[in-house]
Amino acid sequence: MISVKDLSKKYNGILAVNIPSLEIKQGESFGLVGNNGAGKTTFFRMILDLIRPSSGEILIKEEIVKGNNNWKKFTGSYLDEGFLIDFLTPDEYFEFIGNLHKLNKAEVDGRLSKFEDLFNGEIRGSKKFVRDLSKGNQKKVGIAAAMLIQPEILILDEPFANLDPTTQIRLKNQMKNFKEEYNCTLLVSSHDLNHVTEVCERIVVLEKGDVIQDLMRSETTLKDLEEYFAV
């Protein structure tokens, strides 16, 4: 589904990301972990064609992402608040995103009904602008909008950060169900080893831009990771 070839990104001569080769298969759930500055967000931004790689390329369904519009039709993503149109109400925002994917209002409403648990009654019908929502609620809006289009690829950066424990658990279930139902390819980055090992079958550890470990989930994955980060 996603292939990475000789990818690198340099900032002022320092390698931020350096991935010679990486394949993510259709339906895989791919977890990216690493400390601050490991290059997780930079990597995701390059997949989404938001940053120009210094070398190499990324292909989605055998098509180079750079300068291409096709992958946007089936890729949902939420990295940060820079994805939210902050002067709209949540409903207006959902409607706008739905419109871009030719969904009418009823379809948008129908699909969002699945998010009621996650929203906890604070998002839909709200008369507040997105910019006036709390950080946690903004994140819910962004994630829901990314899932709204029922993407084949879903990319989320730190989805659990800023959320309360209840919401974290609800979101985790939401993601698992979503993945099962639509068999989408899921890319998640997180600092939280617990959550990420629970949601993802494949875990990749980045350190200073390099892939240090690439493991399939097993009984001992969480323990191994904790040991690795305990240094």
Binding site: L48, L50, K72, T75, G82, I85
Partner: peptide
């Protein structure tokens, strides 16, 4: 500029 990344990643024909 606030949500430019959103414009770029969504299904929007330039």
């Amino acid at each position: 500029s606030n949500y430019f990344d959103g414009i770029l990643t969504n299904n929007i024909d330039p």
